[in-house]
Simulated assay, not measured.
Amino acid sequence: MLPEPGLYTARGKRIAKIRGKVGLCFVAALSFLAGMTDAVGFTATGDFVSFMSGNTTRLAVSISHGDTQAMLGITALIVAFILGNALGVIVARLVNRRSWPLLLCVALLLCLAALMPTQLIVLLCAALSMGMINAVVEEVNGLPIGLTYVTGALSRFGRGLGRWLLGERKPGWRVQLVPWLGMLIGAVVGALLQNRFGIAALAINGLVAAGLGTASLIIPRRWQRTYMPK
């Protein structure tokens, strides 16, 4: 495969740097939304809608306690999250790797969740949306990015710190804090919103998702294609 024209010129490097900064700002905003959504779901119901590591642990505990109802509910959330990831990739391909249609789907699911009459359906809609959002950005300038989970980001940051302490000066490891900070701040905001509005706060999250979809229209199309799944 031939390299992108101008990739190794000063102008090409400058464009790549700007593309990386824009991508990281987008990642921070999307992680903020994921943190908001997970915090609303967790503080309202005690269940996670994007943190599947936590749900896996909770599933194991419910199995050990023989709690069939909890087992089925948590399993349904994990399955919904997996299906959301799959659906996100499919939609991304169908819309030729554009961000706004995916974010519109996320917005609609979150607004729908806020209107659902039963807790399980609320959580399933939210988990499906959080699975889909992972297809909006998968990497930035070759660096892997996770939007709805930060364990991997913190692990990559820690390994990068270890290499830096050993004298290696490889770039990129510091940016792994971006999704972590985005999710942390978003979770604080989400918890505050849930305290005030209850599960209906998911509608506000839907509006945020719609706003991010609109904002994504100003990101050059060719840049979006590098962020999204191939």
Rank of each mutant, 00 (worst) to 15 (best):
L33K: 02
I90L: 08
T75M: 13
T37Q: 10
L72F: 05
A39G: 09
L24R: 09
G20T: 13
G12E: 04
G66E: 14
D67H: 07
S50D: 10
A39P: 00
A34P: 05
G88A: 09
V40M: 07
A34F: 01
V89W: 02
G54T: 03
G41P: 02
S50I: 06
R11N: 13
F48Y: 14
T75A: 14
G20R: 08
H65D: 11
F32K: 04
A86P: 06
K17Y: 10
L87Y: 05
M71H: 03
S53T: 14
G20V: 07
A29K: 02
N55Y: 00
A16N: 12
G12Q: 09
A28N: 08
K13C: 12
A60N: 05
A39R: 01
Q69N: 11
V22K: 09
L77F: 01
L87W: 04
V27G: 11
V49S: 02
L72T: 06
G41K: 00
D47W: 13
G35I: 00
I15F: 09
F26V: 01
R19T: 05
D38Y: 06
T68F: 11
F51D: 05
T68N: 04
V89A: 10
Q69A: 15
D38Q: 13
G46F: 14
L72R: 11
L24Y: 07
A70H: 04
G88H: 02
A70W: 00
S53H: 06
G35A: 01
S50Q: 06
S50L: 06
H65E: 13
T75L: 12
V22F: 03
A76K: 00
G84K: 00
S62C: 08
D67L: 13
A39D: 02
I78R: 10
A70K: 11
I78G: 02
L33S: 03
I78H: 06
L24H: 08
G20K: 09
A34N: 10
K13F: 07
L59G: 02
V91D: 02
V22G: 05
V27R: 11
G73Y: 03
T68Y: 08
G84A: 03
S31E: 06
D38C: 11
D67C: 07
